[in-house]
Simulated scan of single mutants.
Amino acid sequence: MNFATESPWKYLILWMRLYFTIHYLASGLNFVIFDFVPDFSKAGKVGPYLAAMADVGFYQVIKYLEVVLGMMLLFNVGVPLALIVMAGISVTIVYLNLFISPHPRQLFTGIQELLLNGGLLLAYGGHYASLCRIKSKPYWFWDGLARRQDPNLRSEA
């Protein structure tokens, strides 16, 4: 048993994962179900950027991706992968909300993204440890999956 799965940490991590799930699902489903796109003209300096994203369809792709990622967190399926993809979205949100358009609501959202995604990345960080090796050899994805299924297999990575 590792420290992250012991009480009270496991409950804190579960709460963070579920809160982040609700945040992503609410944001994504608001667009997917109700076709809601906010008025970007009131977003200050960020408005033209978000409007351009919507014009080329990238905003819509992000909203559908938020639903998929939120479902992954909700059902505890591929959480480390979901968090890595969410990190890209979070970095954009943090940058725009903390540095480009630092209004009170955006400041809260930026800090929330930073704390939730950062905390969960740390909580699931053991899954990324092998990515931080200084030197490594090629190691096929499917060989890594086979090794996880059979702990007796040795890897050369």
Rank of each mutant, 00 (worst) to 15 (best):
A4L: 05
T5N: 13
P8H: 10
P8V: 02
L12F: 15
I13R: 05
I13A: 09
I13Y: 06
M16D: 10
R17Q: 09
L18E: 15
L18M: 12
T21Q: 06
I22P: 01
H23M: 13
H23P: 00
S27Y: 01
L29R: 09
N30I: 04
V32P: 01
I33W: 11
F34A: 14
F36T: 15
F36E: 10
V37C: 08
D39F: 08
F40R: 05
V46T: 12
P48K: 10
Y49C: 02
Y49Q: 06
L50F: 12
A51C: 03
A52L: 14
M53E: 14
A54K: 07
A54Q: 07
A54Y: 12
V56F: 04
G57W: 11
K63M: 11
L65T: 07
E66W: 00
V68G: 00
L69I: 02
M71D: 04
M72W: 07
N76K: 07
V79N: 05
V79I: 06
V79L: 04
P80I: 00
P80F: 01
L81T: 14
A82P: 06
L83H: 00
I84G: 07
I89H: 08
I89M: 05
S90I: 02
S90Q: 00
S90L: 01
T92K: 02
V94K: 01
Y95R: 03
Y95D: 03
L98P: 04
F99E: 05
F99I: 03
S101L: 04
P102W: 08
H103Y: 15
Q106G: 15
Q106L: 09
Q106F: 10
Q106T: 13
L107A: 06
F108Q: 15
F108Y: 13
Q112A: 07
L114A: 09
N117K: 09
N117I: 12
N117L: 08
G118F: 03
G119R: 00
L122C: 15
A123Q: 02
A123P: 09
A123D: 06
A123I: 02
H127R: 14
H127I: 01
Y128T: 09
A129L: 13
A129M: 08
C132A: 11
I134T: 13
P138V: 03
W140Q: 14
D143P: 00
G144E: 03
G144K: 05
L145R: 14
A146F: 10
A146G: 15
R147G: 02
Q149A: 11
D150L: 07
L153N: 04
L153R: 11
R154C: 12
R154V: 11
S155K: 06
S155L: 08
A157K: 05
